[in-house]
Design a protein around this nucleic acid. Structure first.
Lengths: 224, 224
DNA sequence: AAAGGTGCTGAAGGCTTGCTGAAGCCACCT
DNA sequence: AGGTGGCTTCAGCAAGCCTTCAGCACCTTT
């Protein structure tokens, strides 16, 4: 799956690119509107992520230029929350969806998946770690085949851990991915949610699947 | 089942193509009248969807050209609500049905099915989720074999949930599929209809088949 | 052994989200 | 024209979630 990100805020672009790369997407990044259009026409992508406000050429114009040329690649627009983005206009020029900033990584990821799913038919894969099953499409978690009800945040945290199973994930990384990337929060909120996850997923089943790695973060593991 | 869509509004064409593809149709899209006629004669389709107003060649003319050539593929016309479309003329040139814009996706889908049914005998499949049975052709719902009377909207919402059973469907997605895709409505209408569905389908039978996933949407599930 | 750092967890407040009854509107049918 | 029924909007209510805070436990370092 190849993605193109056209976004001038370098820091944001980079962090998105990293996250998506880590999930197996091939990601190209461009910081300027004209370059963006050029790149999009030169290469074949499965999805384009366009910021609306861009130097050189706005996301709108890129979008309508591509559509006029018969390009039907799914397009996801990024926009500030003030009235900058006109939803009607966005959809008119042929965008498929849009996300308003600030957004959390998980939200973006969900939207990306939704768009890709339409094309490729067949939902996103179920993640299995030992006898723990995470179903992104259903927003559902099974332990030992039995459903465990989680809140939205809890699910998002778990999903992130599951995507990096057997790896240590820092609180900071969790904060950045599960909350708005602009969010300046206390790492304690992560601890609170981890605590809740353990109470629901581990303790009742006598497991220890979420391991604390002191000074580093957490690791979701199968054995435990 | 192969469909050809000839429609110059790209956004509309795209969204139809997506929806129909997701339901298992093979869909080709063409944005120009002459291309449309060409494509329709070159390839074999089970159904043609023609916009009336088209660049190159109107839907009428495509239709009559095909019929003159002895092609009897079912044809569904799309038309604006003002007097653009003359029903008599449409039927004269050999169209089988027509839908006026703006239309909701479910309406179009129903018409498509109706046309295909004439040909192929044997309607579209019944959906079963636990002891809930959704019969798209009959617009009828059975709980435990017993008919439950729903209004059109209620049925449409339920049908959409049923098509994505066991998955979380956002209010936004429901709005886009069940209402006009151009519809910019309050998500609350969805809540109201969900509420009505539960009152008819769940509460009297002591079920909880429509699950609220806070912050995400609803999930129709068998267990419950 | 003490002190500081790091993490865990229970409780509470504030706030968002969702639910639902009621009223108005519109379209259709009689 | 009048009536009926469905759809949408509105507003108030309820519930649940998220976050913050504080106190405690444990580990590490001095």
């Amino acid at each position: 799956m190849r993605l193109l990100i056209v976004e001038d805020e370098r820091r944001l672009a980079l962090s998105l690119a990293r996250g998506l790369t880590a999930e197996g997407f091939t990601v190209d990044v461009v910081h300027d509107g004209t370059d963006g259009l050029h790149q999009a026409t030169e290469e074949e992508y499965d999805l384009l992520i366009l910021d609306v406000m861009l130097p050189g050429m706005s996301g709108y114009r890129i979008c309508s230029a591509l559509r006029a040329a018969g390009d039907e690649t799914p397009i996801l627009m990024l926009t500030a929350k003030d009235g900058e983005y006109d939803e009607a206009e966005g959809l008119d020029v042929g965008a498929d969806d849009y996300v308003t900033k600030p957004f959390s990584y998980v939200v973006l990821r969900a939207r990306i998946r939704a768009l890709l799913r339409r094309r490729t038919r067949g939902g996103s894969p179920v993640i299995t770690i030992g006898d723990l099953t995470v179903e992104p499409d259903a927003q559902r978690v099974l332990r030992d085949g039995e459903e465990v009800v989680l809140t939205a945040r809890e699910f998002a945290v778990l999903e992130h851990l599951a995507l990096h199973a057997e790896q240590v994930v820092s609180k900071r990384e969790i904060l950045e991915h599960v909350w708005d990337s602009a969010y300046r929060g206390d790492p304690n909120v992560v601890e609170v949610h981890i605590s809740a996850l353990r109470r629901k997923l581990d303790i009742p089943y006598g497991r220890r699947s979420i391991v604390t790695v002191r000074g580093a973060g957490y690791r979701l593991t199968a054995g435990g």
